[in-house]
Design a binder for these strands. Structure first.
Lengths: 122, 122
DNA sequence: GTAAACGTTGACGTCGGCGTCAATGTCAAG
DNA sequence: CTTGACATTGACGCCGACGTCAACGTTTAC
């Protein structure tokens, strides 16, 4: 299929698809006229990428998952490298949550000080 | 005092000080040679800006606090607009925390699925 | 007098995942 | 033949708080 169809079927813009390819995550055959030619498997690949990006992964971090799928695994996450990324991401999210909680406490404290009448839940 | 001293006393780079001025948060008198000339009050202003930025406020969001201080209030947060910003920020942080918690759960779930043997606290 | 350490404005680089042109080629339908 | 929907590559714009030159003027210390 061509890029337009892949875009429609995955809900991803053609711009994004070219971007993924530019960064080596997607490889497309070319038809005689130079158009990109995708297979059914690519729908899966792109969906995996999108799902991970939506959860907060960077494009680079999706690479192990894509590679994993390409090696024939049923899930992008079933390879050692992917699991490693999962764990790193968990730790990273935890750090961010801690930072946000600390900020929240800080803001709440300052608010309470500036405006004693303002109630803050939490 | 000149910009170097203000920078040293506040721990803020001269670049940042000029940036704050460029965005109307800091106003400096000029000496005859064109150098910026700051007063003692500016140390307070800059400290307030830094403190807020460090908590995650944007530069724009610090404006009400600076204005408040400049109006003579003892604290940047003791004006109605500042309190409003505090509350908006709290709500925003709460949203971000919820997003992160959801992501965390999502990642943990996928990890558990991909790697049944991997324990995830939380 | 001269070097070092300060100051000035102006402007580009950073980071990421694209959106959005621009200029141009390809192909099916009428 | 032409229109219009598709494709191509290339490149700038975005957002924010600066870092980091560049090219130059000022002041201080020796």
């Amino acid at each position: 299929m061509r890029i337009g169809e892949l875009a429609e079927r995955t809900g991803v813009s053609t711009r994004s698809l070219r971007y993924y390819e530019e960064h080596g995550l997607l490889h497309a055959r070319r038809t005689s006229n130079g158009y990109r030619d995708y297979g059914e498997d690519d729908v899966r690949l792109v969906s995996e990428i999108r799902a991970l990006l939506d959860i907060g992964f960077t494009l680079e971090e999706t690479r192990p998952f894509v590679d994993c799928l390409r090696r024939g695994h049923s899930t992008g996450g079933s390879c050692a490298e992917s699991v490693e990324v999962y764990e790193r991401k968990l730790a990273e999210i935890d750090r961010e949550i801690r930072v946000l909680l600390a900020r929240r406490a800080e803001v709440a404290a300052q608010l309470a000080q500036s405006c004693p009448g303002c109630f803050v839940r939490g």
